[in-house]
């Protein structure tokens, strides 16, 4: 039982990390229907810049803040240089953002060196609490807390604020929103930057929990994020959370019980969802998958 609870906590923590990067993607994907395959690159850049500034300034929070700033800046560059010429053309979006992904990954190696870099954890987040036989690693609890807060903030902003109303309406009918006098292009840029910032934040928080970062992690987690968005249903924040938790749990449990399956379990979940519910677990009305 203790083992089960421990594994579940690990799974939730991993799911929250995946949620952070997938939630940014579901915004970009859902509202703008932009297939940004460079999203994982922003995640990796967030991780690297977070570690870099943390080590440089010796302040964990400043590191995270500057990682978010990096994410916003890179998001702006991506939108302006890469995505803007190819709005509305999915195939060209896929191809061009994949090219940008390569550039981002290789640039990481140029700037920070090609080797694996150690990522430190601040002292007050090291160690673990023991409750009976249940071990709760502090950093994982921290990640779960951050993930939950972000989910609540994003969900309520989208659900109850005027900005959220515009964004949700934009998902359903872009032209109508434009006709009503909203500068949808500006909204697009801002949403893209927020999505990128979320990816960078995910990266910055991921680094200490894995202890080491490498340039190719962008690709790996980018794929994770896409799978989660597809499983959860495009543009749905609760769907992303649920799918991320599902993937995180499935990964942790299979890694412990059936290690051979751990690599393929995510793909298997996606396969099952694609066969039985191709629109994803939560379907936002107005967003089709055809």
């Amino acid at each position: 039982m203790e083992l089960f609870i421990n594994l579940a906590i690990n799974g939730v923590a991993m799911g929250m990390l995946i949620f952070l990067i997938a939630s940014g993607l579901t915004l970009i994907f859902g509202l703008m229907s932009v297939l940004n395959f460079a999203h994982g690159g922003l995640f990796a850049w967030g991780a690297y810049s977070g570690v870099f500034f943390y080590v440089l300034l010796d302040n964990f929070w400043l590191g995270i803040l500057l990682a978010i700033v990096t994410g916003i800046l890179l998001g702006w560059i991506t939108e302006f240089l890469i995505v803007r010429p190819v709005y509305g053309n999915h195939i060209r979006q896929i191809l061009i953002t994949l090219g940008f992904m390569l550039v981002l990954t290789e640039m990481l190696k140029v700037v920070f060196g090609p080797n694996i870099i150690n990522a430190p954890t601040p002292e007050y987040l090291q160690g673990s609490w023991m409750i009976g036989d249940i071990t709760i690693i502090k950093y994982r609890a921290f990640i779960i807390a951050v993930g939950l807060i972000l989910f609540i903030v994003m969900y309520s902003v989208l659900r109850y604020s005027k900005v959220g109303l515009v964004v949700r309406a934009g998902v359903m009918n872009k032209e109508m929103i434009q006709a009503l006098g909203v500068n949808i292009k500006k909204v697009f840029v801002i949403v893209f930057m927020v999505g990128s910032a979320l990816a960078a934040l995910g990266g910055a928080l991921f680094a200490p929990s894995s202890g080491a970062i490498y340039a190719e992690m962008g690709m790996e987690f980018g794929i994770f994020a896409f799978i989660v968005v597809i499983i959860g249903g495009m543009g749905s924040i609760p769907g992303s959370l649920l799918a991320a938790l599902l993937v995180g749990m499935a990964n942790t449990f299979t890694a412990y019980y059936v290690p051979i399956l751990s690599m393929v379990v995510t793909m298997l979940i996606m396969l099952v969802v694609l066969i039985f519910r191709p629109q994803g677990l939560f379907n936002v009305s107005g967003v089709s998958n055809k």
Binding site: H90, I227, I230, T266, M270, K290
Partner: peptide, 14 residues
Amino acid sequence: KLKSHYYAMLTLAL
């Protein structure tokens, strides 16, 4: 029969 990125994703996963 789905949007283009599904095939891209599935083939990537496979």
